[in-house]
Amino acid sequence: MIDAILLILESPFIQRAIIGALMIAVVASTSGSFLVFRGLSFMTAGVAHAALGGAALGLFLQASGIAPWFDPMLGALIFAVFVALVTGYAGETGIGEKMEVAVGVSFALSMSLAVFLMYYIPPVQVPSIWGYLVGDLLLLDNLDIVMLSGTALLLLITTILFNKEFIYVSVDMEGSTAHGLNARAYHYLMLITSALAIALATKAVGAILVYAILVAPAAASNELLSSVRGVLVAVFFIALISQFAGIALSLSVRTSPSAVAGILAALSYVIALQIKKMRDRVHIDEELEELLKMDANEAQHVHTESHAHDHEH
């Protein structure tokens, strides 16, 4: 049994998958959490699809001989940053809804461009554009790992250094600026590093997994936990466990580990909502019990107090 596990772990595919899963978990716990805090979970989808448009542009420039040096990945990163900049510009006043619209528009623009360029790319190369959306944990190559680890580390360091600033910008951009913080710089730093990480993660493990794993665990943890640190840690573990489960399952059954991990991550949100519901119910029972225990005199006192409380709502 142990021999079998060791044998599996010696396989370079599995090793890369495990490192990849770790790095994706880091991206989810940093980028994913902060995008959910900002009400910008949709940006994940926007960036991933914009990256597709950028990759198409790269392939077009290479295939047409206009710029043979233009790697499709470079196009993907440039377009991802473009979405981050447009979103950031719309959100400079700190309003979430405007940013969602900006994501939608820049995403549509990049996708349209991708489809437009596909007409001019040799048909044999078209599938490799879609390849940017459907990577898989077991298909990672060494370059993927290097790039992914690089951005994951970059994200980790910026988040460790600037987590307070990112939080302040998310909560109160106007007030932060008024207190002398260069809120705009942190605002863009947060969006651009996230966009880079999302684009590379998409190339590495596929869009489905990236959406699921960047959004669902963060949303789930944000429902249940009431501290930023708690959310970041929980997201890391939910992301990691879902991916490891996906990899493990794919070793015994013929299945895509990314898809399994995506399903598990998405389920975490559903489960979180259930737990929250149950917790609220227990909470109410306890409170009612407490009220019952008070004697008549005190009960009256509580009544007036809870009345004043109602008034505030």
Binding site: V36, F37, G39, G94, S170, V171, G175, L225, V228
Partner: peptide, 8 residues
């Protein structure tokens, strides 16, 4: 103007 998505 105060965001309520952050678990502060």
């Amino acid at each position: 103007r105060i965001g309520l998505n952050v678990p502060m």
